[in-house]
Design a protein around this nucleic acid. Sequence first.
DNA 1: CCAGATATGTAGTGTTCACTACAGATGTGG
DNA 2: CCACATCTGTAGTGAACACTACATATCTGG
Lengths: 200, 200
Amino acid sequence: MGMGRPREFDAETALDQAMEVFWRHGYEGATIAQLTEAMGINPPSLYACFGNKEGLLKAALDRYTTLRNIWMDEVVAAPTARAVAERMLMGIADKQTDPANPPGCLLVQGGIACGTGSENVPFELAARRAQNEDQLRDRFVRAKAEGDLKESVDPAALARYVSAVAVGMGVMASSGANREALRQVADVAVQAVEAQSARG
Amino acid sequence: MGMGRPREFDAETALDQAMEVFWRHGYEGATIAQLTEAMGINPPSLYACFGNKEGLLKAALDRYTTLRNIWMDEVVAAPTARAVAERMLMGIADKQTDPANPPGCLLVQGGIACGTGSENVPFELAARRAQNEDQLRDRFVRAKAEGDLKESVDPAALARYVSAVAVGMGVMASSGANREALRQVADVAVQAVEAQSARG
DNA sequence: CCAGATATGTAGTGTTCACTACAGATGTGG
DNA sequence: CCACATCTGTAGTGAACACTACATATCTGG
């Protein structure tokens, strides 16, 4: 009863490579060929080790969330609610634009499809969202000129903020969030805009 | 030199159906078979009219953004920056949970892949995001108990807000937003949390 | 050194996909 | 009524996909 031929690759190292592929191309956009090439193994090894494509994704997500939870522990260790939010959101700003990783967050980007031949679709969508952001920015420029917004406000930054909240709400809604949950988010966000108001 | 056989379907009606399919299943998750069935036509008619799948998406996006821009015109017609933000974000909360439409926003969901057999992947991702939201909520419960947050604050709502901003930033980063842009968003969001603080 | 067990590489499998050839149907201009 | 142009439905096409059968290689226990 021998123990069989030992595995020739390191599972964690291979998972890191798979994680990057899912992160960059999304679940459906990532092909087994891309995954196996990045992991440096052949399909049978992948299936023997992780079951199937979805099993590999879950293993990659486990690894991602393990690392992320360690970071979140540091985040919630901040002394105040404000400091927690600052540490988390500023940290995200840095991490999501770190050239060492694909842009964005695996937990969002993993659901984005960019299969071969349609990589430009997400950019097409982004361009349409940018139109509304520009519209908001123009409106906030006017608000500033009218004395409605503080002199210190950057209208483009405020418009980007409102757009970001809107996008976040969209993803939440797609995942099943109900109306009350979205309204609570909107309510806090509106208060943030109000705080930029000259009378606020 | 006759003018040929006339088209037997209405392009705008068909586009509305296609828009719903892209909205619900994402670009890659939507198959030509699903699209043609929803549109009530056969593939050759689709290709004769819209060129290819991506052409159909762009036509559907055109229709979506046309309707959306009309609504945005009403939004920016609000009297103050605060009212603009309120009208937009509360309107989004309602629209994105309207049972008459698929949940979420086509401009975000259109990039989400839910092909047959992997519909549960987006929910798997959402479940992982919820873990971090719960972590935040617990932290804000503590902050409230410590008198760091106002008595009127709902810790779950505030955690949901911070999570929504984080998700929005993730989508922006995926679309090419740079670090400074994300930091500006984070900065406004942090001020919103600060406004919920007892000393704020 | 042999038997059993597991991993690996090659070379496929069936399925599904976006897309289209083709023939017949339905219109217009002469 | 005829030549021509455009649409429609049937029935595919080749390509790409996730996944696997199989022979071979490499280990352990006895």
